[in-house]
């Protein structure tokens, strides 16, 4: 279903972004009270790194991603992309949101094309849309409307919508959350292949410890809200990785311990 058609019809120009998050704290205001969400987050992602964020629900992962995307501004601290302050959204940093919000009035093809259309690149790059659809296995649903898709298909369409833009920083908020476990495993593999080929920097939020360890070069474990970085774990295993690898199992134990979930393991 997920064909291994590459996006290599288009030359890859963008290399990965260097992302620096320097002392970022953030709070929302909830009924007049400040609600601290992030507490002094500090890390640096090198070009082409794949960083996974793991943390309990509601700890502030999506908030951090919004700040990195430039949709909101941190109350404290600075976020730099290639040494420049992030002030507004930019198509070099593409987000796949937690909910695969597609535009219901556009069919799948034009949903995927929306980024190119917004930047006036659609005429010259129509092929890219087709390729992205093939990549996520939706080439036969190009004409379908979003309400005719299953949850998992919608999420794959959202992924394709991000990939056509060839971002140098790909920000993923549980992009595989709604997929069934089989497709999920398959898409994890696809994501790794894609990242290796395109060389972008990636920031992935996930609830799934195994997924984080299988995909990422580095896993940041966050605390409960307000989130701090509890641990910064490097996963120094070469690709392709094997899920049964003993070193992954050991890392998994360590992460679960950090999350306070090792008792049942």
């Amino acid at each position: 279903m997920v064909a291994a058609t590459p996006l290599d019809a288009v030359p890859i120009v963008a290399r990965g972004t260097t992302l620096e998050v320097c002392g970022v704290s953030h709070h929302y205001t909830l009924r007049g009270e400040p609600l601290p969400v992030l507490d002094g987050i500090d890390f640096r992602a090198e070009p082409g790194e794949f960083v996974a964020l793991l943390g309990p629900s509601g700890c502030g992962k999506s908030t951090l991603l919004r700040l990195v995307a430039g949709l909101d501004h941190p109350t404290q601290g600075r976020i730099l992309a290639n040494s420049a302050m992030i002030e507004r959204p930019d198509p070099s940093r593409i987000v796949v949101f937690q909910a695969p919000t597609l535009y219901p009035w556009r069919n799948v093809w034009s949903n995927v094309a929306v980024g190119l259309e917004a930047r006036g690149l659609l005429k010259s790059h129509r092929r890219r849309v087709d390729d992205a659809l093939k990549l996520v296995g939706l080439e036969n649903f190009a004409k379908a409307l979003p309400h005719q898709l299953s949850g998992g298909m919608a999420q794959r369409a959202a992924l394709a919508r991000a990939l056509v833009n060839e971002p140098s920083l790909l920000i993923l908020d549980e992009p595989l959350g709604q997929l069934d476990s089989l497709t999920r495993l398959q898409m994890q593999g696809e994501l790794v292949t894609l990242w290796q080929r395109a060389g972008f920097t990636a920031l992935l939020v996930t609830h799934d410890v195994e997924e984080a360890l299988f995909i990422a070069t580095r896993v940041l474990v966050l605390s409960e809200r307000a989130a701090r970085i509890k641990a910064d774990i490097r996963v120094e295993l070469s690709y392709p990785r094997h899920r049964g690898d003993g070193r992954l199992t050991a890392l998994r134990h360590r992460v679960l311990e950090l999350l306070g979930l090792d008792a049942t393991w």
Binding site: L71, D90, I94, A118
Partner: peptide, 19 residues
């Protein structure tokens, strides 16, 4: 979220209104 998505994809103000 419709606006957020369009903005991260590089939409201009005009695109946000019209599309």
């Amino acid at each position: 979220a419709y606006y957020d998505i369009a903005r991260t994809l590089g939409a201009t103000e005009r695109f946000l209104v019209l599309r």
